[in-house]
Design a protein around this nucleic acid. Structure first.
Lengths: 344, 344
DNA sequence: TTTAGCACTCGAATTGTTTGAGTGCTAACA
DNA sequence: TGTTAGCACTCAAACAATTCGAGTGCTAAA
């Protein structure tokens, strides 16, 4: 177990390093007002902390730098309390004060405010619509061969696809078909839509409409394309401001991960337990993120976590501030969404 | 006017520099099989070319590098003919061979193939829908207070917004309203929609529906939000592979421009005359693009240019190849879109 | 247990040197 | 008159040598 003095020294080292990015030496530490011991004493303690794996040297005669284990301990036990300024709180609030017209805009804005307040890259994963149910289906014919199929969910989300109309079908059939759908499928969760269409509805259709099947198949096929939740990024270029990424070679894999979106998407998707999670350096499974920390928080509607927002930065990250900001944005976002969903 | 020999030398210098990225010296040139003169002769010619402003030295005793004027001349008069390989042509064709379900996917794929074939950053501007006309409007109530307003255009494009229903309005009114819209506004270009709604339709509404006006205003307001064409990027990270951008300081402003999207959007929007356009270095008005060239091409449906695709890279760019690829993709994209629109 | 002192280490910055690719100019040549 | 060989000169880049300073570990005294 670490002594109080060791804890103090560890904390000051990490705080200082996060601020400056420079290895911290014993003399620098001894000058801090929080610390009353000589540099020699500190050197002894630092040697112990190093042996325990909390800090490291960059070379034999250098100051110390936190190890991943050190950061982990810091995040778990030593986070200095942090309060947002009025201005920050105000900024966040103003984002969510406006009337929501589009969920996507809201998510984009959330990401934006996150990267603005932290100067890191931020990510927002759109809410998962798996749960949402069919409110209305609509087919708008464009001409003889094509039509737009539109699906509206109870959450106000709209999906649409262009479909081909089989030559044997006319406008009347189409209308009948849509009516049957809306009668039978109202309130069905989108995930079950395909199955229901194939079983229950097919029977009814068979009785009323000739040649319904090729059209039905086209529809099922197009509706079934699983719509992935969108990922919103902001402040990608902030990555370049970090001195640890001043070397192009080190940024490239990161920017690739970011550009790809898919990996990040999966990472955030996994995050379903409530609250803030911090992944430091090699705790991230993704290759190319060894020098990064990813801090995620979930947002929810009512009690159910729907999605996640996250900050991506170097392991030398302002954990305290980032976590505070993330918490605040997540809770404001949750509140806004809850209000929005409740009115549905 | 330049002599034939000067032209030859200029061309070889630029070709070589584009390939190698290194300043080209007289000895290197004299060894090329296309060139039969001694290095001393070449030095004389190069001195002339420099005086005329087509090439520059990086320092007093260095080889020569093309100036922007040199690139401009090269692009206008010296482009070596370039043919795509079968494989390349095949790759492009396969992108457009598939059935189009969503315009956005198609644009995204166009951008992707562009950056894949050129190793630069590519941009695709979605088709401008200004011309498109209202096919159908639909209002789907979600609950007492809110509804989704959906607009379908004759091109199969779907726009939707959440709107608030004034308390004084009931489901019947809503339905009547939509019916009136669809009767009166079918075929009206989206740009004129607002005006028509305010003038013609308002009168009819007044006669049939109580309290129509607050709802109408909400609708007009939400429909009127000008939907900007989307910009699709691909290969952003390719920027980092260029040796001229190996310094973070030089990439940052560029990545900022790219991340912002707005400036690029405007730039591409302006490009309406048909064909390929090349902007070299300072010909680009945007700050931060001094070291870049932007090559744009328009794609059209029938005879009307609808949008643009572009490649962004360093001024030392493989102009010949890029222009060839861009032309090919633009014409294949045009063909695909034309087919698609014709069937509407 | 703490601290002062000292020898030692190493990265970073500075300086000097060498090397090679390139130039311009001049004089000879075809 | 145009072309070329030769020569002196320039400069960036690579490399080695040197210095400087911030840091360490260890020891002995307080």
């Amino acid at each position: 177990m670490l002594t109080d003095r060791q804890l103090l020294i560890l904390q000051v080292i990490i705080d200082d390093f996060i601020r400056s990015g420079q290895p911290v030496g014993s003399r620098t530490l001894s000058k801090k007002h929080q610390i009353a011991f000589s540099s020699a004493t500190i050197r002894n303690e630092m040697a112990d902390l190093e042996e325990l794996g909390y800090i490291e040297k960059t070379h034999i005669s250098s100051g110390r730098v936190p190890s991943e284990k050190g950061y982990r301990y810091y995040v778990d036990h030593l986070l200095p309390p942090q309060r947002l300024t009025r201005a920050d709180i105000q900024k966040i609030r103003s984002v969510f004060a406006e009337r929501i017209y589009e969920l996507e805009k809201l998510m984009q804005k959330s990401a934006q405010i996150l990267s603005e307040l932290t100067n890191y890259t931020s990510i927002a994963l759109g809410p998962a619509f798996k749960e949402s149910k069919l409110k209305r289906m609509q087919i708008v014919p464009l001409n003889e061969q094509t039509a737009v199929a539109i699906v509206v969910t109870d959450t106000g989300h709209v999906e649409n696809r262009v479909v081909t109309i089989p030559p044997s079908m006319d406008a009347g059939d189409l209308e009948k078909m849509v009516n049957i759908f809306n009668e039978r499928l109202n309130g069905v969760p989108l995930i079950d839509l395909k199955e229901k269409m194939e079983t229950e509805v097919a029977d009814v259709l068979r009785r009323h409409i000739r040649n319904y099947d090729s059209m039905l198949n086209t529809l099922i096929e197009t509706i079934d394309v699983p719509e992935e939740e969108k990922v919103f990024f902001a402040g990608k270029a902030n990555m370049l401001n970090q001195p640890e990424f001043s070397d192009i070679q080190k940024v490239r894999p990161l920017l690739n991960i970011i550009e790809q979106e898919k990996d990040i998407y999966r990472l955030l998707r996994k995050q379903t337990q409530k609250g803030v999670r911090v992944s430091i350096g090699h705790e991230n499974e993704l290759r190319g993120m060894e020098n990064c920390s990813l801090i995620t928080a979930t947002y929810s509607v009512g009690d159910e976590p729907l999605g996640a927002i996250a900050i991506l930065g170097p392991t030398r990250m302002e954990y305290s501030r980032v976590i505070t900001v993330l918490n605040r944005v997540a809770s404001d976002l949750s509140a806004a969404l809850t209000k929005w969903y409740q009115s549905q």
